[in-house]
């Protein structure tokens, strides 16, 4: 579709049962397209941070933040400016590595991408790699010929650069 954009939304929400349900429900009900969502504690007690990657046209994306703002347990919602944020994702990748040649090839790639080998078995290597989604894609493309046996990605998380933050005044 034309005019499609992808944006990253950071939301601070109450650390309460049911909040994830309300947010997920809102996205389903209003036909918003979640590409990834990550959830975790923040430096502030009782507050959870959700980082949501959504795609859609301009109007839909405006509705996403407005509708999220209406949820009572959502304290603050910001659409992060792409040019002003650092984004990271973590991936664990299990690759088939039955012989010494394959192993050393894979280890070379991992070093170039500044990843780590975190598990070794006679037939496999497990790699941990952190970076922007693009970097992870690039690494996965390199690994494909060896045979990716299992892949787990965390989804994207992000923070604004510099002094800017979405912290809540207490």
């Amino acid at each position: 579709m034309e005019n499609q954009k992808t944006i990253v939304i950071a939301a601070l929400v109450e650390n309460k049962p049911g909040v994830l349900h309300s947010v997920a429900n809102l996205f389903r009900r209003r036909n918003f397209n979640i590409e990834s969502i990550t959830v975790g504690h923040t430096e502030q007690k009782g507050i959870t941070r959700m980082t949501i990657t959504v795609s859609g046209d301009e109007k839909t994306l405006e509705q996403v933040t407005k509708q999220m703002n209406k949820l009572i347990d959502v304290i603050k919602v910001t659409s992060l400016e792409p040019e002003n944020i650092v984004t990271r994702e973590l991936a664990l990748i299990k690759v088939s590595a039955p012989d010494a040649k394959t192993r050393s090839d894979i280890i070379n790639c991992v070093e170039v991408f500044r990843g780590h080998i975190i598990d070794v078995s006679p037939e496999t290597l497990m790699t941990e790699i952190t970076g922007t989604p693009d970097k992870i894609e690039a690494f996965l493309n390199l690994m494909k010929p060896y045979g990716i046996m299992e892949l787990a990605r965390t989804g994207l998380t992000a923070l604004s650069r510099g002094i800017k933050s979405i912290k809540i005044d207490e």
Partner: peptide, 8 residues
Amino acid sequence: IDAAEIGK
């Protein structure tokens, strides 16, 4: 009164 209605 509902900001989400504006432009929806």
